[in-house]
């Protein structure tokens, strides 16, 4: 149970790491919203979330296995979750997009021009 939690947290962290790369950001928002380069503030928010998630995941691993084995097991764990993120990004971009939209900050990071136009319509 804790293992799954640790794994999911590191996966979540890597999602944000991946999205904080400019090129990936553009790829994801293409066809969803009009792509807009990542702003500096958004970049730092994502990095912060990612690092927090990674720390929490490390903490979980230490709780399960103890500090020695835990740190090593954690390194292997994040290897696997990073591989998963890469695989998703390269082969199943739609799934990645879906995850980003519904489990992460997908909507919050929407480009402002479109956001305003949506607001306009709803008003």
């Amino acid at each position: 149970m804790m293992i799954a939690l640790s794994f999911l947290l590191s996966f979540y962290g890597f999602l944000h790491f991946a999205m904080s790369v400019k090129k990936h950001h553009m790829d994801i928002y293409k066809g969803w919203y009009q792509a807009k380069p990542l702003s500096q503030r958004e970049y730092w928010v994502m990095q912060a979330i990612a690092w927090l998630a990674m720390t929490a995941s490390f903490y979980c691993a230490v709780v399960i296995w103890g500090i020695g084995i835990g740190s090593m097991a954690w390194l292997m764990l994040i290897t696997v979750s990073a591989l998963l993120v890469v695989a998703l990004f390269s082969y199943r971009l739609q799934w990645f997009k879906w995850l980003w939209r519904y489990t992460c900050l997908g909507h919050k990071f929407a480009p402002p021009e479109l956001k305003s136009s949506i607001d306009h319509r709803s008003r």
Binding site: F14, F17, S20, V21, K23, H24, V85, S90, Y91
Partner: peptide, 11 residues
């Protein structure tokens, strides 16, 4: 650039 893979042609 932790995650800078070149994803040309999605493969």
């Amino acid at each position: 650039d932790f995650f800078m893979f070149r994803t040309k042609n999605r493969s």
